[in-house]
């Protein structure tokens, strides 16, 4: 059960995010908000293989949720504050979590072959996202080099400067990386490819259909809750 998402078609995974977004529009009162949030949380408990990343997503979404709740409270609508906060969590958290399960090559295959988006932009999009995932290795090297060169953080103020410096280094690395990768891509026929084929097909399984159905049902939970209450 906990391997389901790792084996799910990228489009089905993206539907989870879209369904959560659409479902959040139906969150209008406390019962529908609690029902929707509970539904997604239970689904997460059943299928997520680990909790470190989902909890990190929850924390980040929680910042937005907290700010929206605070705004509602400051604007004289304290009863609506928890509803607004839960709506933000329902809107953002499921999509933020499932995006980590998307296989980039498979996503490119789906976008080009099933959705028939233009080949070249899709290939470029997938290659650029792949470079983003490689930033982890670059970041490790940048941090390692700075630490051994005495340029690591050594206090709160220097930690802020260090973060800024590392961010700038990563930005510079990303820009230089992009240029060199585009040279390498063009030299492998990308520059002149007016049409291209794809090395893998786009299988759709019963599991993918089931994921879409469950996500749709979860999106409908706040609607049902409002009808029942």
């Amino acid at each position: 059960m906990r391997r389901v998402l790792a084996r799910t078609n990228p489009l089905a995974l993206m539907w989870i995010g879209v369904a959560a977004l659409l479902g959040s529009f139906a969150v209008r009162d406390l019962p529908s908000a609690v029902a929707a949030a509970t539904g997604w949380a239970l689904a997460g408990l059943l299928v997520l293989p680990s909790w470190r990343y989902p909890v990190a997503c929850l924390a980040l979404c929680g910042v937005s949720a907290g700010l929206v709740a605070y705004s509602a409270w400051r604007l004289g609508n304290p009863d609506h504050a928890p509803v607004a906060a839960l709506r933000i969590l329902v809107l953002a958290w499921p999509g933020a979590v499932v995006v980590a399960f998307v296989d980039l090559s498979d996503l490119g295959d789906e976008l080009a072959q099933r959705l028939h988006l233009p080949d070249r932009p899709v290939a470029a999009f997938v290659a650029s996202l792949q470079r983003v995932s490689g930033f982890g290795v670059t970041l490790q090297q940048v941090l390692r080099a700075r630490r051994v060169r005495g340029a690591g953080p050594h206090g709160p103020a220097s930690a802020v400067r260090h973060a800024g410096s590392v961010t700038f280094a990563m930005l510079a690395a990303a820009l230089r990386d992009a240029g060199r990768t585009s040279i390498a891509m063009d030299a492998r026929g990308f520059a002149t490819a007016t049409r291209r084929t794809w090395a893998q097909g786009v299988p759709w399984t019963v599991r993918d259909t089931a994921v879409v159905v469950v996500a749709t049902l979860l999106a409908l939970v706040p609607v049902v809750a409002r009808v029942l209450t």
């Binding site: 792949q130 490689g134 026929g189 084929t197």
Partner: peptide
């Protein structure tokens, strides 16, 4: 490097 797995990476040119 343009892909996460070595097979798809090498396939990039033939796909083009």
């Amino acid at each position: 490097v343009v892909a996460e797995r070595i097979g798809r990476d090498v396939a990039f040119g033939p796909e083009n």
